[in-house]
């Protein structure tokens, strides 16, 4: 029974189907909210789906200077790794795949996703992609440190003495004594995590790697058709994964039965997407490369380190 249940879990609920729908929904909501904030009508809710389907319909051009195998393989591996990451998120307490230190697995699979984006860009052989991938790497260096500090803090709080890396213990802890967001000591960590999400996903204020105006779609300069569709889908699923991670870590409300939990989880994810991705998108212009790095290694890491120290002192 459990094998069929895991297969069902993987395929349906917290697995593939739910992830794809949720990511399309979150991406759509994000674009509509940004439009509404600028007092304009904005695209339909299914616009990300149309974008991906339209890209599938266009022909795929392999540039002469590109290394074809890596050029085509990178988006597939990237999308696969992001979808596997989504399997680890506990949707309403139930997660498709269970490994007892899956926070580090999530960290590394997200790194793998960014690495495939970088390797794909370098395989496309265009100078714009070269500049784009160097910016993506700088962005990765800048958000990796605060993300790790936040994970250490949450692990320390939920570990009750023996720190943990596993989301199931985090969920159990929050089921017992309320979501972590209510704990004032963890507010700096929550703020740091909210800042990390847009840079990890590559959302507008921090999308220094795909800056259309500066370096002509940077990393994706040579991509068209199917690989481009996979990268766009990867972008959307990353949006869902990061907001899901935030909800799993800070906003894990578990009432009695499953359906209410899932509903609360979806609302929470939408809220997190709005706060962390739509608001900065509508409010600020794009950061310069060294501003991103300086901002993350001073302000955001400061918040994360502050809450880590507070937790460590035993508050």
């Amino acid at each position: 029974m459990t094998f069929i249940q895991t297969i069902l879990n993987i395929l349906l609920l917290p697995g593939l189907a739910f992830t794809l729908i949720a990511s399309i929904w979150l991406a759509g909501v994000d674009r509509v909210l940004v439009a509404r904030m600028q007092r304009r009508v904005g695209p339909s809710l299914l616009q990300p789906l149309y974008d991906v389907l339209k890209c599938l319909g266009k022909e795929t051009i392999i540039p002469r200077k590109a290394n074809e195998k890596v050029f085509l393989l990178a988006p597939v591996v990237g999308l696969a790794s992001v979808l596997v990451t989504a399997m680890f998120l506990p949707v309403g307490g139930v997660s498709a795949l269970k490994v007892n230190s899956d926070m580090v697995v999530i960290l590394y699979l997200l790194t793998l996703a960014s690495v495939t984006l970088i390797v794909g860009a370098s395989a496309s052989g265009s100078p714009f992609a070269g500049v784009g991938l160097s910016r993506e790497m700088v962005a990765m260096i800048s958000y990796e440190l605060p993300l790790v500090l936040v994970m250490l803090t949450v692990g320390r709080v939920c570990g009750k003495g023996l720190a943990t890396f596993s989301l199931s213990t985090v969920t159990a802890y929050q089921a017992a004594n309320g979501p972590l967001l209510l704990n004032p000591v963890l507010w700096p960590a929550a703020i740091a995590m909210l800042f990390v999400i847009p840079c990890e996903v590559g959302q507008h204020p921090f999308d220094i790697d795909e800056a259309e105006t500066e370096i002509c779609e940077g990393v994706l300069a040579e991509y068209s058709g199917r690989p481009l569709a996979q990268f766009k889908m990867m972008h959307n699923v990353k949006m869902y994964v990061m907001s899901g991670l935030f909800c799993a870590m800070f906003l894990n409300i578990s009432t009695g039965f499953i359906l209410a939990d899932i509903l609360i989880y979806c609302v929470a994810c939408t809220l997190v997407t709005f706060v962390s991705m739509s608001v900065p998108h509508a409010v600020t212009a794009r950061f310069r490369v060294e501003q991103v790095f300086k901002f993350y290694w001073t302000v955001v890491t400061g918040c994360a380190a502050l809450s880590l120290i507070l937790v460590w002192i035993g508050l």
Binding site: I7, G57, E59, I61, V99
Partner: peptide
């Protein structure tokens, strides 16, 4: 760090990907 379920999941994703490949537009090689 590792359990075999990952491979089943990766397999599933690849099959889903292949089905979409067959219907969408052609590949243009120089």
């Amino acid at each position: 760090a590792w359990n075999p379920v990952f491979f089943i999941v990766l397999l599933l994703i690849v099959t889903v990907g292949v089905t979409i490949y067959s219907v969408s537009a052609p590949l243009r090689r120089p």
